[in-house]
Design a protein around this nucleic acid. Structure first.
Length: 259
DNA sequence: TGCCAGGCTTCAC
DNA sequence: GTGAAGCATGGC
């Protein structure tokens, strides 16, 4: 058990932020995260966070996963300094959000599944793909999943997208190592060569799987915010390399308001 | 019980 | 290039 004092971090907000689909609340104050073929229990009280792992594992795996090297306090301050009423409220509300550095393969598959879908069902589908274990299916494994198996996991019409992608990665026509080396614009274009990956999914992959924090995924929620509070015009590029973080505060705040 | 969900592809025009 | 239809499935 490792106890750390972490500011600008709230595991409940992160778990409910819609960027990852394998963090579940176990009991009050305790969450279970599955990633990288590992399982991690996390509990939190104020800024005291308990990670159920060794210091070595934390430094090797989870420090980067939770983006611990980034100063979110400074980013929030610069957003608040803009004096934008909506963004200020969003930042204050989602004060403990972070952009996770997730596994690239899992992120692409997860966000293909996310299209025209709701978060509880996305989580359920991914859990079934994993056989409710810590193991997310590899490229080779997913390429071999039968259509019936994918359908029984609840992928619906997205089954073909996922299977084609897995087969393309396996046979080398879509190269994840190449993708990792591309800049933001190149990565978006390359991702969109795959069937089932459009602008929104590509931007989610860039943000959550490649950690291109200039990515600004525009989904129905963000569209609604822009239409309602910004008269249909919102230039995310002014935020440069933290546009994606701004997006996450907006998304989380707007969704929470609807509940 | 329908409506809708972190969109995308296809096909008119 | 823009716009609208169609899409599988289950949570609510």
């Amino acid at each position: 058990m490792l106890i750390k004092h972490v500011s600008d971090f709230n595991i409940e907000q992160i778990a409910d932020s819609g960027q990852c689909f394998r963090i579940d609340k176990v009991t009050d104050g305790k969450w279970r995260l599955r990633a990288f073929n590992r399982e991690l229990e996390i509990s939190q009280r104020q800024e005291e966070v308990r990670f159920d792992c060794s210091a070595e594992e934390f430094d090797a795996v989870w420090f980067d996963y939770f983006d611990m090297s980034r100063d979110y306090g400074a980013i929030k301050s610069s957003i608040l300094a803009l004096g934008d009423e909506y963004l200020s409220a969003a930042v204050k509300f989602g004060y403990g959000l972070r952009i996770l550095r997730q596994d690239l393969w899992e992120t692409i598959v997860s966000f293909i599944i996310s299209q025209r879908n709701n978060i509880p069902k996305i989580k359920n589908t991914i859990s079934k793909l994993c056989h409710d274990s810590v193991h997310f299916p590899s490229v080779a494994e997913l390429a071999e999943f039968s259509d019936d198996k994918l359908k029984s996991c609840g992928l619906g019409y997205r089954a073909k997208y996922v299977k084609d992608l897995a087969q393309n990665v396996r046979n080398g026509s879509f190269d994840l190592d190449k993708l990792k080396k591309l800049n933001y614009t190149q990565a978006i274009d390359y991702l969109k060569t795959q069937s089932g990956v459009g602008d929104k999914v590509a931007n989610c992959v860039a943000l959550f799987g490649l950690h291109k924090t200039e990515a600004f995924p525009v989904d129905v929620w963000i569209k609604r915010i822009i239409d309602t509070y910004y008269n249909g015009h919102f230039d995310a590029s002014k935020f440069k390399d933290y546009a994606g973080i701004v997006q996450q505060y907006m998304f989380y705040y707007e969704r929470a308001k609807g509940k």
